[in-house]
Simulated scan of single mutants.
Amino acid sequence: MIRAALGLVGLLGALAVVPPASAEGNTDYSVLMISRERLEVATSCEIGIYLNDQLAARLFQEQSTSFNLPPGPVDVRMRLLPGQMPGCAAGVEDQRSTRLNLKAGQISKYRIATGPHGLELRQANLGY
């Protein structure tokens, strides 16, 4: 009984040291929107969106995605993903990424297009 009481007192003491979670503080972030709304990429294959070399989204035709990111630089890379569609097997592809410098409170919209070196991002109008 004494052990349980001491354990409970110790646990409560440890919880008092940990600061409470709060939604307040540094809430500055930027919004990055990437769309594949237009038929500029002539493939039915799924396109993978990589942020800082981590797969963050997968897009088919007529889809878009958005990310709430901290301000600062972010590397964006795209590649065709192998999947259910025939002919979507990954081959030799360009591993270049686009570096975007995001600012707090900024909303940026890009669309996926095909350029001379493969898939690329082009700035798009926010439309509102």
Rank of each mutant, 00 (worst) to 15 (best):
M1L: 11
I2D: 14
A4K: 06
L8F: 15
L8T: 11
V9E: 02
L12Q: 07
L15D: 12
L15A: 15
P19T: 13
P19R: 13
A21I: 12
S22E: 08
E24H: 11
E24C: 00
G25R: 12
N26S: 10
N26Q: 02
T27C: 06
D28W: 06
L32N: 13
R38C: 08
T43V: 04
S44Y: 08
S44M: 13
S44N: 09
E46V: 14
E46Q: 14
G48F: 00
G48P: 03
Q54C: 00
A57C: 05
A57D: 07
L59T: 02
F60N: 06
Q61S: 00
E62Q: 14
Q63G: 01
S64M: 11
T65H: 00
S66F: 13
L69M: 07
P70G: 07
G72L: 11
V74A: 09
V74K: 15
D75V: 11
D75I: 09
V76F: 11
L81F: 11
P82D: 13
Q84M: 05
M85I: 02
P86A: 15
P86S: 10
G87Q: 02
C88G: 02
A89T: 04
A89W: 00
G91R: 10
G91L: 08
Q95F: 02
R96L: 03
S97Y: 14
S97W: 08
T98V: 12
K103P: 03
A104V: 13
A104D: 01
G105I: 06
I107P: 01
R111C: 04
R111N: 15
R111S: 07
R111G: 13
I112V: 10
I112Q: 04
A113E: 09
G115M: 02
G115D: 15
H117Y: 10
G118S: 09
G118W: 05
L119V: 05
L119S: 01
L119Q: 04
L121A: 10
L121K: 01
Q123M: 11
N125Q: 15
L126R: 12
